[in-house]
């Protein structure tokens, strides 16, 4: 295994408010790295730092460095970076376009115009996201007509169509029912080994089910990081133990 994302002394601020302090960690290539922690622990802010989406916030500032492969993410063109590091949000946000146009949105923005290429791309992405069979007959229908779970898998397919190296999941099932959640988790398991996945979740059991390694964030600090199994069975910090066994949070 090799290091894919390396984080050094990262601090994040919104205005004067520090949301993450002195974080250093490494994420391996093609693992599912899960981050758990209560609300306001800085986990989502950290995630959105990885593709520089935080920068949309006027007051956001960061110190320290994040490298993707061998490059500092601040030196990569931000649009390229966001294509390489895709993100799936807590709520499914399909654009008010057809299923087909949703999936090809990213590639079209990066200059791909050929019809056959796009058709292939749509089929491959939908198959990878386990949605192809459900929607193959209505690719040109509005994406807003899909169910919540289908919409979320559509969003995954949309990210896959950009052929990313890293996929960020920001509490991707917090708005879904248990059945849809299971389908999304299945999809993640299938993607394991092909993409580096960083999953932020407040569902502890989900982290235990899909993660290879897990980090526990609390109030802007990383309390513990290690193999998922270790973090859940014999945590080295008592706060982690209390959190994963449901004593707080």
């Amino acid at each position: 295994m090799s290091t894919h994302i390396a984080v050094r002394d990262l601090c994040l601020y919104y205005g004067r408010n520090c949301v993450l302090k002195d974080l250093s960690l490494e994420i391996q290539r093609n693992e599912i790295f899960t981050i758990i922690g209560p609300a306001n622990s800085g986990k989502s802010s950290f995630l959105q730092t990885l593709n520089r989406l935080n920068e949309l916030h006027a007051e956001f500032r960061k110190t320290g460095s994040v490298t993707l492969g061998a490059e500092d993410i601040d030196t990569i063109d931000v649009e390229q970076l966001r294509a390489r590091v895709g993100i799936v949000f807590a709520l499914p946000f399909p654009l008010p376009l057809s299923i087909f146009d949703n999936i090809t949105y990213g590639p079209r923005m990066h200059g791909i115009r050929q019809k056959t290429q796009m058709t292939d791309l749509v089929e491959r992405s939908l198959r990878e996201a386990y949605l192809w069979d459900e929607v193959k007959d209505r690719l040109h229908h509005p994406a807003m007509n899909l169910s919540g779970g289908q919409q979320q898998r559509l969003c995954i397919a949309r990210v896959l169509a950009g052929q990313p190296e890293v996929i960020l999941f920001d509490e991707p099932t917090s708005g879904l029912d248990p059945i849809s959640t299971a389908r999304v988790e299945e999809t993640m398991m299938v993607l394991r080994g092909r993409y580096t996945i960083v999953l932020v979740t407040n569902n502890v059991a989900q982290a235990a089910r899909v993660g290879t390694r897990t980090a526990f964030f609390l109030m802007g600090e990383m309390v513990e990081v290690g193999d998922t199994k270790d973090v859940f069975t014999r945590p080295s910090d008592s706060r982690t133990d209390e959190y994963v066994t449901g004593k707080f949070g």
């Binding site: 989406l53 949309l56 649009e79 993100i87 949000f89 654009l95 008010p96 949105y105 990213g106």
Partner: peptide
């Protein structure tokens, strides 16, 4: 959300 999604997909 439309803006955030579009930007997150690498659009300028």
């Amino acid at each position: 959300s439309f803006r955030i999604v579009s930007l997150s997909l690498g659009a300028s």
